[in-house]
Design a binder for these strands. Sequence first.
DNA 1: AGCGGAACCTGTCGGC
DNA 2: TGCCGACAGGTTCCGC
Length: 281
Amino acid sequence: MPELPEVQTIVNDLSGTVVGKRIESVQVFRDAIVQLDPERFVNRLTDTVIRAVYRRGKYIVFELSGPLWMVVHLRMTGKFSVQPSPAPVHIHNRVIFQLGDRQDMIFNDLRCFGTIDLTEQIDKYPALNQLGLDPWDHRLTAPGLYKVLQHRTANIKSLLLNQTIIAGLGNIYVSEILFDACIHPDTKGYQLSKKQVTQLLRSTRTILSDALTFNGTSISDYRRVDDKQGTFQNFLKVYGKAGSPCHRCASTIQKIKQNQRSTFYCSQCQQKKRSFKRLPA
DNA sequence: AGCGGAACCTGTCGGC
DNA sequence: TGCCGACAGGTTCCGC
């Protein structure tokens, strides 16, 4: 569900509603979500104050007094909402944080893929340290990305989904980015030219910025903290558009499976370039 | 090392 | 109507 623009929107919403609040009590309804003993989880969180909320890749990090950090991943269907306490009962509510001002911060997750963990050393948290650069990080450059992709034999679609290369992209935006950059999703990493990689990075930043401006893409599950929808779904050019005419050339948008996941693209605009490049050593 | 496939869990939708 | 398979925005683990 949530990719970088959705996670950033949620972080922005939470920053405006829960920062400065004290966690008075915590209820865990589904133990598997919490990555440590639930009783210990509750004890360590109780009476901490939320100092800040920020994003790294698709992870949400709550900086708490202690100091302590709560690291959350929404996976496919995780959501946060903030409601007056006591919040109405909902079968998919997995963890409820009761805040000091009679507000509840609720973690709701239909599929239970989401995770919530605690750490006292955020700098040494493995999942975050394994992430690649964020798309807007100035250290992420076209020559640098080209160099990485040159040694890769996988298709560019799955390489863009790989969070250790660039952090934050998911299935919707990768299709949109490759369409914007006119790159065929089955192009192998090493087959991309410098020019294509430059365009790829430019498209990545443009698409994500636009999606963030519209508070993300609400197709089925994703909702903001106040339950409002994002609106970028109104601007998608290829994702979920199989059979529709291409915005650029009017030929039919195709749907294929790559590594068990759907990819949407225009076979006219995104042609595989004939390449004589050798396989990487 | 890096790749592709299966698995994790729950719900919805379309076809027969 | 009912059943069954396919599919869903993500990640991790496993075998090759």
